[in-house]
Design a protein around this nucleic acid. Structure first.
Length: 967
DNA sequence: CTGTGAATCTTTTTT
DNA sequence: AGATTCACAG
């Protein structure tokens, strides 16, 4: 079918020449569209999808579109909807549109069993940190301590490997002499095992496992005819691999859209080199490769395009780019340098006021954006905006889900729904009286050494019951009583879940677990009084209840539903029976092998390869016993056991329950009085019992035994955690993956909700304010948060060294690395500049002190003065930037400086701060705080005994209390 | 061992 | 605003 010309014109007529060229490119090609800021890439992408369907007769279900954020995917769906609304025969809802992560997650949910992944949950950042910390404590390595620094290096090592698709068994050690790297690797192994134990995969794993799935069972994507990728410059290597894997059945029909200049996610291992890699790969595979550049900008004025291009000319190895503005507005870009940091918010706020009053241009609040490199800049701006009553919103304030009371409640739900050990750990710490660090690790030792691949549902509850009843010794009387209470609540809640509706259930959990009081204890902030804190907590819990209540699997999870339908349909017709029948000798006739091997060449081409296993063994030789353990754990040639291997083994063994369950289940049910259990057992008996018990559960009829003593001494430095051979705790019952059995409907609702939340970004940045604010609000956002958006007026505050470019890039020792980092900072700057349609204000300040000085960003020096109008001109000073090499680089941690920095001209705040009104406060540094604008460090001077300040958190659309119960 | 409160430190960017 | 650390009490 071809589209009739009139219809073509109606749908696509408004596209310009190069857009049409891209639109009409053959389906059978790798098409790369280079789309600078404001060149209408979303429009083109949406059109291209429609064109593929209409012109090449592609089924909607055969198309995948990946976007960078969930928000972008919603927008794309909307636009497709309105573009195709007259084509009722086309069910565009069948198109898989979503972020890489959410699309891949859908594949894993449905096809996960093909690689042995079943009933997995996503580990959030809290889970990740907890696990990594535990792992590092156990490994007790010299170079990687379980502190923040060690965690950070380790986590970035892990993410880095996962971003190229390397699980521990695939890792290539780059520098065998680098002890730190080796230790990171060990931690990675142990971390990955812990994840598997807890039945979790982390965010990065979603991609890695999908990668493995698509290699092992390529027929999953047999129906795919085209994949389109938005924001290609922010994809990483595993995503590039996935792009080719998704399109392996259709000769790599790929459309990618992006702009290397806007690649600002390098810290997340995004690689804009993917632009050249995709080209090389396409050519290697003898595919059609086409590149089209869009040059017409529909967003910014010529001045804005000019200044941003001038900046980017300083980028290393970049080809010049010319964007043509279609705006006829002759407005310059403005630059102003302030004498003091506190002048800046005043300038910005009054500029906004001024522009609002000028009715000629008709700007509304929503046309303004203040875009900063780091979110901490907003602190001072917020104060000034509040003072003047300028309504604003912060697009990504501290995530709702990270609030204490919210995460505490979520943990409770995780326990109730999934018996999740990581959540137990966190909740017991605050809920169970007499339960601290030591007791938890005692329990964890038993929980994790259950000799199974995974902690089965109900197992933790069981173990706790045994502890609480003294069947497993080691728990003090107070803790026992409290644990019993705790377990009873869980049990009751699980009952309630079955019969109550979601909100009732939720509030009963809040009440049962006394969440509000416990959350109160956790709020250490001095800036609010108790009533206020309690209000906040209540409001946030109500908000959570609303989220819970309004969660509608069918609507919210449209993608998931769509995918399930597509996949089910496909499997019905498929000749590939491997879904339930896993064969390790995977059929070699699939195209995957070729494509993936092509890729290996690209991804790790350099460096000598040393197998980490060899290195480990070399180390382990020092200790024969450890080595033996290591050896026993590995199977034949397979190196370390991965989650996949574990699952495979589980399947092969297919054995049944190996643990004799004690009939203690009922003990708690009978509601034992806590007092009955207070008799402590003599110490000797205890240790003996630990031995017996451990032996009891760890010594079923398999050939590896772990003596209790060994269990406790896993802390040796060179060995990875004990790799246990696989046995199955529960007979795998394919037809009923929900271990909860009867009445699973409501439990499923809760589980789905929890999973949905983990994939959802921060609470949808509530655009619902439209009703209250017909003019909208001023937007405060980070550069990263501003991606893909545009505003008429953009103000860029604090363009100073240490903020942009950030201290982290300036402090980098290695020259090459530093250059890379600075390039990325420059791209950040570029993204910020190109968000503006009409008016763009650049603002800096400078501070000179003996120990450090703050100067305008070195990037400003790169821009010719002719590119902007300097509002300081009258003050004669040449204030536009400094040579990079002249910089005094602020030390990474100037807050260690003996004398805290006193912002000049600090006015003493009047002692009349009252509780209920928003007081006229001076900006930063008021109330005697000393503030370092680069690091954001603030130190509170004891100052005059002011009453605690009230700070209303506006901006984030917080809850309306729809919920029924009043707490 | 655990619980508590005070003091101190942190804060680039996020799917 | 929360996490972490320390000292001290039970």
């Amino acid at each position: 079918m071809t589209i009739v010309p009139t219809e073509f014109d109606r749908l696509f007529g408004s596209l310009n020449e190069s857009q049409q060229k891209a639109l009409k490119a053959t389906n059978d090609s790798v098409l790369q569209i280079v789309a600078g800021p404001g060149t209408g890439k979303t429009k083109l992408l949406v059109s291209r999808v429609a064109y593929l369907i209409l012109n090449f007769d592609l089924l909607p279900s055969s198309i995948i579109v990946t976007t960078f954020t969930k928000k972008a995917s919603i927008e794309m769906k909307d636009r497709l909807n309105s573009l195709l609304k007259d084509h009722e025969n086309i069910n565009f809802k069948k198109i898989q549109i979503g972020t890489f992560h959410s699309i891949c997650f859908g594949y894993l949910k449905f096809y996960g069993k093909c690689i042995g992944l079943e009933n997995f949950n996503i580990a959030d950042t809290k889970d990740q940190k907890d696990m990594l910390k535990m792992v590092l404590q156990k490994l007790n390595m010299e170079n990687i301590q379980p502190d923040k620094f060690g965690m950070r290096t380790c986590l970035s090592y892990i993410t880095k490997n996962k971003s190229i698709g390397s699980h521990p068994e695939d890792v290539v050690i780059l520098d065998p002499t680098d002890v730190k790297e080796l230790q990171c690797f060990q931690a990675y192994q142990a971390y990955q095992e812990t994840l598997a134990k807890n039945g979790k995969i982390d965010f990065d794993d979603i991609l890695v496992f999908t990668y493995k799935l698509l290699i092992q069972r390529p027929s999953c994507v047999a129906n795919i005819r085209h994949i389109l990728v938005d924001e290609f410059q922010d994809t990483n290597i595993i995503q590039l691999k996935l792009i080719f894997l998704f399109s392996q059945y259709c000769n790599d029909n790929i459309t990618i859209v992006g702009d290397a200049d806007q690649s600002i996610y390098g810290f997340r291992n995004a690689s804009y080199e993917n632009f050249s890699k995709i080209k090389t790969t396409a050519l290697q595979k003898n595919r059609n490769f086409m590149q089209i550049t869009l040059e017409q900008s529909y967003r910014s004025t010529a001045a804005i395009l000019q200044i941003s291009e001038a900046l980017m000319r300083h980028q290393t190895g970049r080809t010049d780019k010319l964007l043509i503005s279609n705006s006829d507005k002759q407005i310059p870009v403005y630059y102003i340098d302030h004498e003091y940091p506190e002048d800046e918010p005043i300038f910005i706020a009054s500029k906004i006021d001024e522009l609002l009053k000028d009715t000629n241009n008709g700007y509304l609040l929503k046309d303004f954006a203040i875009i900063a490199r780091a979110s901490r800049i907003f602190l001072s701006l917020e104060k000034e905006l509040l003072k003047r009553g300028i309504r604003y919103r912060i697009t990504k304030g501290h995530s709702f889900w990270e609030l204490k009371e919210v995460s505490m409640a979520m943990d409770c739900l995780q326990i109730i729904a999934n018996d999740d050990w990581l959540s137990y750990k966190r909740v017991m710490e605050w809920f169970v009286d007499g339960c601290g660090e030591k007791l938890i690790s005692k329990i964890e030792n038993i929980v994790l050494n259950n000799n199974s691949n995974e902690i089965p549902y109900g197992y933790v509850y069981d173990i706790l019951t045994k502890f609480a009843t003294g069947m497993i010794p080691g728990m003090g009387a107070k803790a026992k009583a409290s644990t019993i209470h705790f377990l009873t609540l869980i049990k009751d809640s699980r009952e309630l879940l079955k019969i109550n509706d979601p909100v009732d259930f939720f509030f009963s959990v809040v009440i049962k677990f006394n969440l509000i009081d416990f959350a109160m204890k956790k709020k250490t902030s001095r800036s609010k009084d108790d009533d206020e804190k309690r209000d906040d907590i209540r409001n946030n819990l109500h908000e959570l209840a609303d989220q819970f209540n309004s969660y509608n699997p069918a609507d919210d999870d449209l993608l998931r539903k769509t995918q399930a339908e597509i996949f089910a349909e496909q499997e019905k017709n498929s000749a590939d029976n491997t879904l339930f029948n896993i064969d390790n000798n995977q059929s070699a006739n699939e195209p995957s092998i070729k494509s993936s091997s092509t890729f290996e060449d690209i991804t790790h081409s350099q460096t000598s390869r040393v197998s980490p296993k060899d290195l480990l063994n070399k180390q382990a030789q020092k200790s024969p016993k450890k080595r033996q353990r290591n050896k026993k754990a590995s199977v034949g040639e397979k190196p370390q056991t991965s989650i996949i291997d574990l699952f495979k083994m589980e399947r092969k063994e297919g054995s049944s329950l190996k643990i004799k369950k004690e009939p203690v289940d009922d003990i708690v049910n009978k509601n034992i009085e806590p007092n009955n259990n207070e008799k402590e057992q003599p110490v000797e008996q205890c240790t003996e019992e630990i031995g017996q018990y451990t032996e009891h559960i760890t010594k079923p009829d398999i050939d590896v035994t772990i003596e209790p003593t060994e269990v406790e001494s896993i802390t040796t430095s060179t060995t990875p955690l004990v790799v246990l051979p696989a046995i199955t705790l529960q007979p795998t019952n394919q037809s009923n993956p929900t271990p909860l059995g009867i009445c699973a409907e409501k439990e499923k609702f809760l589980r789905d909700f929890l999973q949905f939340i983990q994939l959802a970004e921060s609470i949808a940045a509530t655009d619902e304010n439209d009703v209250n604010d017909p003019n909208g609000r001023v937007t405060l956002t980070t550069i990263h948060g501003s991606k893909g958006l545009e505003w008429s007026v953009v103000l860029l505050p604090s363009l100073i060294n240490g903020i942009i470019p950030s201290v982290y890039s300036l402090a980098e020792q290695s020259i090459e690395k530093k250059e890379l980092l600075l390039d990325e900072e420059r791209r950040c700057f570029y993204v910020a500049l190109t968000r503006a349609k009409d008016l763009l204000y650049l603002s800096t300040y400078h501070v000179s002190r003996s120990d450090y000085s703050i100067k305008p960003s070195c990037f400003l020096k790169e821009i010719p003065q002719s590119c902007y109008k300097n509002l300081n001109e009258s003050t004669s000073n040449q204030l536009q930037g400094y040579e990079l090499d002249q910089l005094s680089i602020p030390s990474a941690a100037p807050f260690h400086a003996k004398e805290p920095f006193q912002a000049p001209r600090v006015p003493n705040i009047s002692a009349s701060s009252t509780q209920n009104t928003i007081v006229k406060t001076e900006v930063i540094g008021s109330s005697g705080d000393s503030y370092n604008p680069v690091t954001g460090a603030i130190s509170n001077e004891p100052s005059n005994n002011l009453p605690p300040k009230k700070k209303k958190r506006l901006g984030m659309g917080r809850p309306k209390n729809n919920s029924k119960l009043i707490l």
